[in-house]
Computed example of a mutant assay.
Amino acid sequence: MVYPILGYHIGKLVGDEIPVVIGLDTWKPNLDDLKAFGAGFATTSGSPMFHIVGVTPEADSLESIVGSKIKASYEICPKDVVADWRKLNGGSVDGIEFVALGNPHFSFDECERLAALCEGLAKHPDVKVLVTCNRATFERASAAHLVVKLSDFGVEFVTDACWCTLAEPVIPKSVDTIITNSAKFAHYGPGLTGKALRFGSLADCVAAACHGELKPVRPTWD
């Protein structure tokens, strides 16, 4: 859950400026991590781009991007991220009736990870789990038998649509609280849906799907 909320926090810090982020190269973020970071970043920033030293291909070093002209610098501590996590967890109760995944659209690798997390588990009958992805990803996941596995758990799919366009009846009127692993949807979701939003990791979302509730879990840096 760190990458989406870290992007969200950095976007607030820099506003319209282009940031150069250092210290993430040892974490070795993958494409899905960067996608989540970018979505969180774009939610709170008007900047057209970001650099991550040692990760994005143009950023070999800090000097190669900014030279000696550093306009401002910030040190981000875990407590800063926790403060944003609290802000995005607007749900005042532990009960959860809906799991919203795929903002931005789910990738094939994320489908694989979700299937692994759901394996051997049973979804709570009163919880709906919905994944949005593009049609090509859905077809690839279908060919790899991931859609069958996820459907057996109770996951539903919507293709070629984003969460900003989804409302009733896709999100049932009876739903009070939604959980998502997207900082972007946790930010915009309350206004778009009229529901309370909780924000957590993909594993948190699966746990909520199984139990119909989730106690708040503070984010960690792993």
Rank of each mutant, 00 (worst) to 15 (best):
M1G: 03
M1C: 07
M1N: 10
Y3C: 03
Y3E: 01
P4E: 11
I5C: 04
L6M: 14
Y8R: 09
Y8S: 07
I10Y: 11
G11R: 06
V14I: 02
V14H: 04
V14A: 04
G15P: 13
I18N: 12
P19A: 07
V20H: 08
V20Q: 10
V21Q: 02
I22S: 15
G23A: 12
L24T: 06
D25R: 15
L34S: 01
L34E: 01
L34C: 04
A39T: 00
G40N: 02
F41E: 04
T43H: 14
M49I: 04
M49K: 14
H51C: 09
H51V: 00
H51T: 04
V55P: 04
D60H: 05
S61P: 06
L62I: 11
S64R: 10
I65G: 07
S73E: 15
S73C: 11
E75W: 08
P78K: 10
K79P: 00
D80V: 06
D80N: 13
V81I: 14
D84I: 11
D84F: 07
R86V: 00
R86F: 02
G90S: 09
H105Q: 13
C111D: 08
C111N: 09
R113V: 01
L114N: 08
A115N: 03
L117F: 13
L117C: 06
E119D: 14
E119P: 03
G120W: 05
L121V: 11
K123A: 05
K123E: 07
H124N: 15
P125Y: 05
D126W: 00
V131K: 06
V131S: 05
R135D: 12
A141D: 10
S142W: 03
A144K: 11
K149R: 10
F153V: 02
V155S: 06
V155Y: 13
F157Y: 15
F157D: 13
T159N: 05
A161V: 02
C162W: 09
W163T: 02
C164F: 13
A167S: 14
A167I: 10
P169H: 12
V170W: 09
V175N: 03
D176V: 06
T180S: 15
T180A: 12
A183K: 01
F185S: 08
A186I: 01
G191I: 00
L192K: 05
K195G: 13
G200Q: 00
S201T: 04
A203P: 02
A203Y: 07
D204S: 02
C205R: 02
C205K: 02
C205E: 10
A209F: 07
H211Y: 14
H211Q: 10
G212E: 03
E213F: 14
L214P: 06
K215G: 05
K215S: 11
P216F: 15
